[in-house]
Amino acid sequence: MEQLNPFTKIRRDLHRIPETGFQEIKTQQYLLDYIYSLPQERIEIETWETGIFVKIKGTNPRKTIGYRADIDGLPIVEETDLPYVSEHLDRMHACGHDFHMSIALGVLTHFVHTEINDNLLFIFQPAEEGPGGAEPMLKAAPMERWKPDMIMALHIAPEYPVGTIAIKEGLLFANTSELFIDMKGKGGHAAYPHETNDMVVAACTLVSQLQTIVSRNVNPLDSAVITIGKITGGTVQNIIAENARLEGTIRTLNAESMAKVKMRIEQLVKGMEISYQCQTAIDYGCMYYQVQNERQLTNEFIEFAEKDDDINVYHCREAMTGEDFGYMLKEIPGFMFWLGVDSDYGLHSARLNPNEKAIERAIAFLTRYLTYKGSQ
């Protein structure tokens, strides 16, 4: 029978029960059951919605170091043949949050049993994939009471081998926003188009116009992405569509570009109302602030990691991915890094299968780093 590292077993248990944002009932209970099984003398536990705060009291605290792990899954039907496949048929931990939780529990467990000078605050955050848990969690009473002086987090990276940390100072992840545009015109018989205002034609025209924003309204030395991933409209083939809906995403490398892109989208949509005599509505849905790694703390972390014999450090570039940890870094100095997990399939893939050897390696490295940082 396979002998599993206890935190690999935890990862598999969590992988079986993925839940989406603010629905992480089973996940929260699993985490609480484990945390309450540990010695309680030096820890304090508070819940918020489906999230958890765990404070470990330092022996001679001068600061509090925060560590955040996200806990939600995605609405994806899993397509792996793993023996611990998701038991929730339309949910999957396809972004590695099961790894994030098990690593955080491993580090937490170490410091429950091993004293450290400074306080540690472990934050198990819901709803990272949406609608966003970081920003409201910052306003939670436990966070106001135990607010860290610095904070850190990791995200698995399928493209890097186990034992690799990828990081950079400054911008790591982009500003992101969802985009939903509803259009309402006048439907009718396919044989009488002149008596209608066709929203399929309007939607197709708008998609083409939206693609001019990046090429003609964003500085070529900057970067932005507008992707329309879904169009719905109409009912059957011989009725001209009265309604259409576009769904997409916006990504920019700075907050100013995001504001400019949105302004231009609104101008183009307003123009569609005039051109196609229709009504429109725009919803930006879930919006995430950029992940901006604080320079000094990031470089200190890089310097420590480069001296560690078990870790390879890769100086990566910024990515157009989004992460609501950016809201925490906006308020608290700190950093996020990529953790190599060596998977043939990428993030949000129904076949994602990270290498579990990364769990034990990450726990060991992070306990070394926090021991060092918590004794400075």
Rank of each mutant, 00 (worst) to 15 (best):
N243T: 11
R245L: 14
R245S: 15
T249Q: 13
Q279P: 14
C286T: 12
Q267Y: 09
K260A: 13
E273V: 13
Y288F: 14
K270N: 11
M258T: 11
Y276V: 13
K260E: 10
R245E: 15
C278V: 03
Y284D: 15
C286L: 09
I265W: 01
C278D: 03
C286V: 11
Q267M: 10
I265P: 13
K262D: 02
A241I: 07
I265D: 11
Q292I: 01
E256V: 12
K262E: 02
C278N: 04
A241S: 09
V291L: 03
I282S: 13
N254I: 00
Y276G: 06
S275V: 03
R245C: 15
N254A: 03
G271A: 00
M263F: 00
V291P: 02
Y289N: 08
K260H: 06
N243K: 08
I239S: 00
I250G: 01
C286W: 10
R251Y: 08
Y288M: 12
G285P: 05
R251F: 03
Q292L: 05
L246S: 05
Y276F: 10
V261I: 07
Q279W: 14
L246K: 11
Q290E: 02
R251G: 05
M287D: 08
E256S: 02
A244W: 13
R264A: 02
K260M: 07
N243L: 09
E273S: 08
I282P: 14
Q290P: 11
Y289K: 05
A241W: 06
S275T: 02
L246N: 06
C286P: 07
T249Y: 12
N243W: 06
A241K: 10
G248N: 09
V269P: 03
M272W: 03
N243D: 12
K262W: 04
I250H: 06
D283S: 13
T252N: 08
I239T: 04
Q279V: 14
M287K: 01
S257L: 00
Y288S: 06
Y284R: 14
V291H: 01
D283Y: 08
K260F: 04
N243R: 08
Q290F: 00
A244I: 07
S275Y: 09
Q267W: 05
I282K: 14
E256I: 12
Q279I: 14
R245G: 14
S275E: 06
M272S: 12
N243S: 08
C278M: 13
T280N: 08
G285H: 14
Q290T: 02
C286E: 11
S257H: 03
Q292R: 04
A281N: 15
E266R: 05
T252M: 08
L246Y: 12
E266W: 02
Y289W: 01
Q279K: 15
E266L: 05
E242D: 08
T249E: 13
E256K: 05
L253M: 13
V291G: 03
E242I: 08
L268V: 00
I265S: 12
I240K: 10
Q292E: 07
A241Y: 05
L246T: 03
G271N: 04
S275N: 04
G271W: 03
K262Y: 03
Q267K: 07
C278H: 07
T249P: 11
C278F: 12
V261C: 00
L268K: 11
I239N: 00
Y289G: 09
D283N: 15
I240E: 01
N254W: 00
A259C: 14
Q267V: 04
M287F: 07
M263Q: 02
M263I: 00
R251D: 08
